[in-house]
């Protein structure tokens, strides 16, 4: 028995196998279907809305851009590069699930309207990939972060769960400077004595929740690298913990997840070898002017 999904998958495979000049362009709908199929994952869009968020599903896809968030800057760069299928890790319309009914902004907000107009006007399509990027083998987001930090070789193999990094001992300031440089941060906040020697680091990215981040603080690691935190809860806990033992906290911000979308682009190139595919990285949005 041939079901609809198998038929679609077969069609996509046929299209991919055909010479580029002879094949009709893939539609956004077909690209999304192939991403779901090739991921090998049971696709559940519910937790983080990994679906086509905006754009015409029938639009022919000219190329794919992966990114942390589909900012107007990214959309413009993608359009200039001839890429019209945009895969952001995070939400695109300023509400965590791109839920316009739940957004505090009105539908006619000029920034939302301008972004929608840009996407529509350039035949673009936005498809979010959050949970299914994390659940790629090895967690694409974490893989990208560790690779960007050059820390993948320092990851302890015998520690399951969040990455446990064992670095050659160095001052917290030196490690902080490394993180700042490798992640191209204009600002990197830290808690703790910069001169303290550290070696083991528990790493998380994005916003896994206060509970997880507090467990990192209690893991026994010399230091923790966190993404975005709810400060009264997590930094507050670190403040209190610092009274009973030494604590070092580095805060990379949420965009520490950005390099992981580069890993996703590498994988997509194997799925769509005939399409141009790029990761469009994001500059650190924050500065601390003196």
């Amino acid at each position: 028995m041939i079901d609809r999904r198998m038929t679609l998958a077969g069609m996509v495979s046929t299209l991919l196998a055909a010479p580029a000049s002879a094949a009709a362009p893939l539609t956004a709908r077909a690209v999304f279907a192939e991403i779901r199929r090739a991921s090998g994952q049971k696709w559940d869009p519910n937790p983080t809305d990994d679906r086509i968020i905006f754009g015409d599903r029938a639009a022919p896809v000219t190329g794919i851009a992966t990114c942390f968030t589909a900012s107007l800057d990214v959309l413009r760069r993608a359009q200039a590069a001839g890429l019209n299928y945009i895969i952001p890790h995070e939400a695109s319309f300023f509400e965590r699930y791109d839920d316009f009914a739940e957004s505090a902004l009105p539908d006619h907000d000029p920034v939302i309207r301008a972004k929608q107009a840009f996407v529509t006007g350039h035949g673009m399509v936005i498809q979010r990939m959050h949970g299914h990027a994390h659940s790629r083998p090895g967690d694409a987001i974490m893989t990208g972060l560790l690779r960007q930090l050059d820390w993948d070789v320092y990851r302890a193999a015998d520690k399951p769960g969040l990455p446990w990094i064992v670095l050659p001992p160095a001052s917290a300031l030196k490690v902080g400077r490394h993180i700042k440089a490798r992640l191209a941060r204009r600002t990197l906040r830290m808690l703790g004595d910069p001169s303290r020697t550290i070696s083991t680091i528990s790493v998380s990215a994005g916003m896994p929740g206060e509970n997880v981040q507090i467990q990192q603080l209690e893991s026994g690691a010399d230091a923790v690298l966190l993404g975005e935190v709810r400060e009264p809860e997590v930094l507050g806990y670190a403040q209190d913990l610092a009274e009973s033992r030494k604590v070092t906290v580095f805060l990379s911000g949420h965009t520490g997840e950005d390099p992981g979308m580069g890993i996703l682009a590498e994988w997509l190139k194997t799925v769509f070898p005939a399409l141009p595919i790029q990761w469009l990285g994001m500059a650190d949005p924050y500065s601390n002017p003196a």
Binding site: T69, L72, F94, H254
Partner: peptide, 17 residues
Amino acid sequence: EIHETETTAYVLDCIAL
């Protein structure tokens, strides 16, 4: 503090416009 993927993202797009 804010939710970075919502408020920071909004400011960046305002600036881009």
